[in-house]
Nucleic acid binder design. Structure first.
Lengths: 136, 136
DNA sequence: AATCCACTTGCAACAGAGTTGCAAAATATT
DNA sequence: AATATTTTGCAACTCTGTTGCAAGTGGATT
């Protein structure tokens, strides 16, 4: 529980109960979470707006990153400690069509892609859909 | 202009002016379009709701597919004729951070990825962000 | 532990995106 | 031209996300 305070302090953030609870939710559930998921988990305790603002702050500080699939926007913890300046920008996410969960796949590189002339790539985001180990 | 009617008929759709105009917009502008883009282009002529429903219909019939980036949802024409049953599911999209346009990159395969044990992939969606030929 | 300032929260109100029900209009078929 | 079926426009609504502001809290200082 003190680890939470450490993480927040490490990103120059005041420790508030909402931030601790949101961060802790991301850590215990390991999959990507939408605002709605968090509202479901903590909604009694905090205002909708506060959760939105917490997510925005965590994004800016590099604690979480956006995850997109055709159902909408989710967030997941950044694996290697990202900071405000330095972000790890290549992500692979796996969305299970059975259980609907989306997870980051760590320790896996996106293979190089030969882009046509003139395109300059900055970052890559791969979304794989299929069946996860739990559901197959 | 008659090609539009052919395409619609080919997907068992009645030809209406709205559908023709939406389809024609996708063909002339070649990049991915959001509902807002279409509303901007044709908004005087058709109701918001009608454009939403047209997009939904086109999606179901496999005429267009979803394209996602962190700014939201867009749609783009399916390259090889997709049908209601058979969809080409691997897509590479390039989003230019300068001009904001998102385009499908055709004729380019996503290299194989070694997924951890237990994961079964069905389709791949790669979003590359960077600078496009026009802007570099 | 009391004070202070800056930051954070809750509330209300708003803006935008997307959906649904229903009556009127348009399409394709005979 | 008449018909059944599909599509459209309108109104109303839901869901997601944002903004301004006053009240409350965190944490550094004394």
């Amino acid at each position: 529980m003190d680890q939470l305070r450490e993480t927040l302090k490490g990103h120059q953030l005041r420790t508030t109960t909402c931030r601790e609870d949101v961060l802790s939710t991301f850590i215990t559930k390991k999959n990507a979470l939408s605002h709605g998921d968090l509202e479901g988990a903590l909604g009694e305790n905090y205002d909708r707006v506060t959760i939105y603002r917490t997510l925005k702050t965590f994004l800016e500080k590099g604690i979480i990153h956006k995850v997109l699939d055709d159902e909408g926007l989710r967030y997941a913890l950044c694996s290697h400690s990202c900071s405000e300046e330095k972000h790890q920008h290549d992500h692979i996410h796996f969305k299970c069509s059975e259980c609907g969960e989306t997870n980051c796949i760590e320790n896996l590189h996106i293979p190089a892609v030969q882009l046509p002339m003139g395109y300059q790539a900055q970052n890559f985001n791969l979304l794989i859909q299929g069946t996860c180990p739990k559901c197959s």
